[in-house]
Write a protein that binds this DNA or RNA. Structure first.
Length: 217
DNA sequence: GCCCAGGGGGCTC
DNA sequence: GAGCCCCATGGG
């Protein structure tokens, strides 16, 4: 039952917005930088921070590992919470170097849930950041939940806003096939919808989902 | 000047 | 486990 509803929403969003071509990055490493930097800020700020790193040729975890934390923080200043995010990038760089020799290929060989546990143990990598890295950088079949997903699916009656990350993730993963392409596109479409229509003050009168029946239940 | 953005950690009870 | 505060930039 919920499978049908979830696919109906997906199809409607895809029809309205088309493929989002996520994640907006040139390399897997750049995806991971972005996943950490985007915590609680808009993508425009992340773009500025990524551009500043690129300009200085610092967009590499091997480089970040040996950098001074203060210098790194200054470069990523537009990304807000700069000191915490600089430390998060450095901690990730240490882990990535020690455990995988800075090799995405090696890292991808590890099993999804074992990898997720590793990521969650790192400083300032919580469920959303870990899952973004797993799905968009390592191409593992895991569904990313964010505040937009919660807003959209609570307003349509699937779960409550205050329900846990895990419950939202189960809603998708237990009712959809474990398909990397589908999970990639679905989350990207939800972010697109969320950032235009499903703000705290929603624009429901022009939302592509406005004529859908509520999930009720 | 105000509000808010693609989180997560640390603390209290 | 819930409820709060902290972090501290930039765009609308």
């Amino acid at each position: 039952m919920q499978t049908k509803q979830l696919m109906a929403i997906y199809n409607r969003l895809y029809k309205a917005f088309g493929s989002r071509n996520w994640w907006p990055a040139d390399t897997a490493e750049e995806v991971i930088f972005g996943a950490i930097l985007t915590q609680s800020i808009t993508w425009k700020n992340v773009e500025q921070a990524i551009a500043a790193l690129k300009e200085r040729r610092k967009l590499s975890f091997k480089t970040v590992a040996t950098m001074d934390g203060k210098e790194l923080a200054e470069i990523i200043r537009p990304a807000r919470f700069l000191n915490q995010k600089a430390q998060a990038l450095k901690k990730y760089a240490d882990y990535f170097g020690e455990k995988y020799g800075y090799s995405i290929v090696k890292m991808k060989k590890r099993e999804l849930w074992a990898l997720r546990e590793e990521l969650l143990s790192l400083y300032r990598i919580g469920p959303e950041t870990a899952d973004s890295i797993l799905l968009y950088a390592l191409e593992k079949p895991i569904f990313v939940i964010d505040v937009y997903t919660k807003r959209i699916f609570s307003r349509h009656g699937f779960l409550r806003m205050e329900d846990s990350y895990e419950n939202y993730q189960k809603l998708f993963m237990e009712n959809l096939p474990g398909d990397v392409r589908l999970y990639n596109e679905y989350h990207a479409l939800l972010v697109h919808l969320g950032s235009w229509f499903c703000k705290p003050k929603p624009l429901c009168d022009t939302c592509p989902l406005r004529t859908l029946k509520s999930a009720g239940k």
